[in-house]
């Protein structure tokens, strides 16, 4: 068994998860640490459920075994529940409290759990709920919610906040650096007490 720190990031195609995972990878490079990752995307960009595995200090394969993740970052409330079995018992979960209902709820008349039901089911974990869309909008752009999520998770990451912030600066589009730096700091501030 490795001593890697395993992070599963989940959400819906189009929420900026790939950039978020690249920021984590870049922060590892800044700290001269090994990192492995794996993503599902492609078809998933068309509204599908997306998962990204990141193993900081990982030496072997990129995939995290269920029940073995140290941290779960979810960009959507329902997706947090869908992938919750990946987290270690009592593990840390940083979750955007918004939920996009799957189209299958409307077209196939399937029943989605309510927000309250999901939150109750997630209570057995070390749960941090954040309204990332609102914080991102306050920071200057709703598109920065991926960076808000990283900020909110920063306390639980084995990476220095300076490295994360430097990685954000390096990877976000140049015109949006100020907004994203603010998004990271505001997310981090929220995560401190959450």
């Amino acid at each position: 068994m490795t001593v890697s720190f395993d992070i599963l990031t989940v959400g819906i195609g189009g929420q900026g998860m790939i950039l978020a995972s690249n920021i984590l990878g870049e922060a590892c490079l800044i700290e001269k640490r090994h990192v492995k990752g794996a993503e599902t995307y492609g078809m998933a960009q068309r509204g599908g459920s997306v998962e990204s595995h990141i193993r900081i200090d990982g030496l072997y394969g990129p995939l995290i075994a269920p029940g073995n993740a140290d941290l779960l970052i979810s960009f959507d409330l329902l997706e947090a529940l869908r992938y919750s079995h990946y987290l270690k018992a009592g593990g840390r979960m940083v979750v955007n409290r918004r939920m996009v209902l799957p189209t299958s709820v409307f077209t196939q008349k399937l029943v989605a759990p309510t927000e309250d039901e999901i939150i109750a089911a997630l209570k057995k974990f070390d749960l941090c709920l954040i309204d990332a869309d609102q914080v991102a909008t306050d920071a200057g752009s709703p598109l920065s919610q991926n960076v808000v999520m990283l900020g909110a998770a920063a306390r639980s990451l084995p990476l220095g906040p300076g490295s994360l912030l430097e990685a954000v600066r390096r990877l976000v589009p140049r015109k949006t650096i100020d907004i994203n730096v603010r998004a990271f700091e505001m997310g981090r501030e929220f995560g401190r007490t959450c």
Binding site: G48, A65, P66, G67, L81, A89, P102, L110
Partner: peptide
């Protein structure tokens, strides 16, 4: 060495769909 972990059942799926 890996724990047995069972996903939550009966959640509405989110398969890829035409944009």
């Amino acid at each position: 060495p890996f724990p047995s972990a069972v996903p939550v059942q009966n959640l509405p799926p989110r398969p890829p769909i035409l944009c």
